[in-house]
Design a protein around this nucleic acid. Structure first.
Length: 767
DNA sequence: ATAGGGTTAG
């Protein structure tokens, strides 16, 4: 019966005569094909279901329709229905059903089909093998793909492309390129598809040289910029390689642009840190582009606004999102959320989060990082907690929340999150480990940080930078340098940030010669052009070491105009070495550069008051006040049993305030016996001596330490964190407190760690 | 062919 129908359909399609019943079926078949050609898959399906015993051609047509646009599981289901109905699939069936398998990542079904194909001896068919390669590649079975490919008696450009696309999909740059070369050696010419699949990998690897030679190949083969696919892929590749000039040239030459082209251009500008240009292209697209923008363009434009802190621009884009109906797109929702959060408009961000119908891990993570970046770690913890009852945290969530612990020096929170990372299987991630290292280092636990670092199976440049910076801020410069040497022994190439970490490490440890050496080696041996940040470190290093004139000379010879920060570094050195003359000159330079932070006012008035010129010190403070710069109050805090206790100077709000002041009195009496005299030069206000002394005696760090001595056991070191730099008077007092209390005290201030013990500090009084 | 949240420094 089956065979009969087979013959009948065959004969019909050959235009032979048809009897009445058969004619009925033939009409249905025509209808089915008509529906399919119109893309009306469901209507075609209805017709198909009415046909009593469809031929293999009809089965194939239906499976093909589903495997083309989905729903893919229907394609697979139909394939099994076909087998069950006794119809044997032919060599055209397998590529269709395998495509459905690869779209669904249905490996088990794919393997079963492979087995079947092998049994009926179709494995070496060109089309079937290629489909198998594609399926295995998408399902992540690279070895199986290779096995099928190696077993092919002959290959065409499509089979090579399947291998190339597979490796490209997994971001395996070397293998992708390798197969292209092999393909050419085997005499197969790469076609447009090859190039279009190859270019994103090249871009990802930032392999500009290879990208340019592929561009050359495109031009030689006449599929260059005018082809929208090739043109867009080339443009995107150049953007990923931050080769703006080439990208723009192609963009300008392209006679037709589609939404992907625009989107690649906008995203590319964002990647290259050219936010204004990104927004300009976005506006251009809104004018020239025929249809509604791609959501990806909108997402990139939102990122640009976030980076520019352009709230108005962001709100305009928000309106566009509403107008074009993008709000149900979670990517756009999250981009909006993140834009508000990054700009610091946290209220808007939280409001938006509450309104979101579907929130995912990204939504929460965006808010968490927004809070952390805006210095509100406590709120970040609150959101994180509410997140845990709704969605799973992932790598980015942990990388967002762990720095909150670092900021607060909240070790208990940090350990909790370390545990959470382990539970969720995220602790082995490089970025999570990096964040953990930083957290332990900033909480004063060098050994814990080191342990995380040592246990990592893979380390990237950030891991090393974090360690170098960590050792640096703890005043262990020699170890920082030795890490720097070790990283190169392990073939990790130092970047510009590595040198910032290294130079500041030298500076904190007074390693002037070493620091100067590495500063010069950076340009000569590592081909890294020093940025302003490197000069700041160098000036700091020389200045601290007392080489003020040399530091001044480096600023003079910088290839760009000095900014407030680099002058600020020199001003700090003037304070340490009490050089009023240079200090005044530097202040004038800073004054010319316009508004700046409060730190420099404080430094200058410190210089004056250290020299006993209190009137001038007061003048500076008045000027600061008149210009509207408020000094942020000094604040110190300490974590005891997972709770954070914060103090500001003269604070009496703590429940145990009475006892704390009592303890502090006691300590002051003791250290005065050891020779402590309040150093009033650190007090800037025009008050009388008694007041000055009072202001000093109850600085926030002293209160925090007194509290810590009261509330923690004797054998444990005390860890205090301060938002500003520790003042000189407190620094001296704490040294003596270690003697009378027999405690080790570690203070993390705005610039480094001070390890106090036995009457000394490891910063050697140069901070 | 394009697109959302992330770690290091100052």
């Amino acid at each position: 019966m089956n065979n009969l129908r087979f013959l009948i359909t065959q004969s019909h399609s050959n235009g032979s005569q048809a009897c009445k019943g058969i004619h009925h079926c033939a009409l249905e078949e025509d209808l089915l094909h008509k529906h399919l050609s119109m893309g009306e898959v469901e209507l075609a399906r209805k017709v198909f279901d009415e046909i009593p015993q469809p031929s293999v051609f009809l089965w194939n047509a239906m499976i093909r329709a589903y495997s083309w646009k989905g729903p893919f599981h229907r394609a697979i289901k139909l394939y099994y229905d076909m087998l069950n109905s006794g119809v044997k699939p032919n060599k055209f069936t397998f590529p269709f059903v395998l495509k459905a398998c690869s779209s669904l990542l249905a490996l088990e079904e794919g393997e079963e089909i492979h087995e079947y194909v092998r049994r009926i001896g179709l494995e070496s068919d060109l089309f079937v093998s290629t489909a198998l390669i594609d399926m295995y590649m998408k399902c992540g079975c690279l070895d199986e793909s290779c096995a099928v490919f190696d077993g092919m008696p002959n290959r065409d450009v499509v089979s090579w492309n399947a291998m190339i696309a597979g490796f490209a999909l997994h971001g395996m740059y070397e293998d992708t390129i390798g197969y292209v070369l092999e393909m050419q050696n085997a005499g197969t010419r790469p076609n447009r598809s090859t190039v279009v699949t190859l270019l994103p990998v090249v871009g990802q690897a930032k392999a500009l040289t290879q990208g340019r030679s592929i561009h050359g190949y495109c031009v030689r083969r006449y599929f260059d910029e005018d082809d929208i696919l090739v043109g867009t892929a080339l443009l995107d590749m150049y953007m990923k390689c931050t080769s703006l000039v080439y990208a723009c040239r192609i963009f300008g030459k392209m006679s037709s642009k589609n939404e992907v082209t625009w989107s690649a251009m906008i995203g590319g500008y964002v990647l290259c840190d050219r936010m204004m240009d990104a927004l300009e292209v976005f506006d251009q697209m809104m004018l020239e582009g025929s249809s509604k923008p791609a959501s990806s363009s909108l997402a990139s434009a939102l990122r640009a606004c976030a980076k520019l802190a352009d709230l108005n621009g962001g709100k305009t884009l928000h309106n566009y999102s509403i107008k074009f109906g993008f709000l149900s797109d979670i990517t756009i929702g999250n981009s909006l959320l993140s834009m508000y959060a990054k700009i610091g408009s946290i209220g808007d961000a939280v409001k938006y989060l509450d309104e979101m119908e579907f929130k995912d891990t990204v939504s929460y993570s965006a808010i968490i990082s927004g809070y952390v970046q805006n210095g509100n770690a406590k709120e970040a913890f609150a959101i994180f907690k509410s997140m845990l009852s709704n969605v799973e945290p992932d790598v980015a969530t942990m990388v967002g929340i762990i720095p909150a612990c670092s900021h607060l020096s909240a070790l208990q929170h940090g350990k909790l999150n370390h545990g959470l990372a382990i539970i969720h299987g995220l602790a082995s991630d490089v970025s999570v480990s990096n964040a953990l290292i930083d957290m332990y280092m900033k909480c004063g636990r060098i050994d814990h940080g080191r342990e995380v670092f040592d246990r990592m199976s893979k380390r990237d440049v950030v891991s090393w930078n974090t360690m170098i910076a960590g050792y640096g801020t703890h005043g262990r410069g020699k170890e920082a340098i030795s890490l720097f040497l070790n990283m190169q022994a392990e073939c990790i190439v130092p970047d510009d940030i590595t040198f910032i970490c290294l130079l500041s490490a030298c500076s904190h440890s007074g390693l002037v010669t070493e620091g100067k050496h590495w500063f010069h080696a950076m340009t000569l041996n590592y081909r890294i052009k020093p940025r302003m940040e490197h000069y700041i470190c160098l000036v700091d290093l020389l200045g601290r070491g007392g080489y003020l004139d040399e530091a001044r000379e480096y600023i003079r010879r910088m290839p760009f105009e000095p900014d407030v920060r680099v002058w600020g570094a020199l001003l700090g050195a003037c304070r340490i070495h009490k050089n009023i003359e240079l200090g005044e000159e530097v202040s004038q330079m800073i004054g010319k550069l316009g508004p700046e932070g409060t730190g420099n006012f404080v430094l200058l008035s410190n210089i004056y008051s250290a020299a006993g010129r209190f009137n001038e010190a007061a003048q500076v403070r008045i000027m600061q006040r008149d210009k509207g710069f408020m000094k942020s109050p000094g604040c110190s805090w300490i974590e005891i049993k997972g709770n954070i206790h914060a103090f500001i100077g003269g604070d009496r709000t703590h429940p145990q305030s009475q006892k704390i002041y009592g303890k502090l009195q006691e300590l002051l009496v003791e250290i005065k016996k050891l020779g402590y005299r309040p150093d009033t030069s650190f007090v800037l206000h025009d008050m009388d001596d008694e007041e000055k002394e009072h202001a000093l005696l109850y600085h926030s760090e002293k209160l925090a330490i007194a509290f810590a001595i009261l509330s923690s056991s004797n054998d444990k070191p005390i860890f205090v964190t301060k938002n500003l730099r520790v003042c000189g008077d407190c620094h001296g007092a704490i040294k003596l407190i270690t003697l009378v209390s027999k405690r080790v005290i570690v203070v993390r201030d705005a610039s480094r760690f001070h390890h106090f013990s036995d009457g000394m500090c490891n910063c050697r009084d140069f901070w």
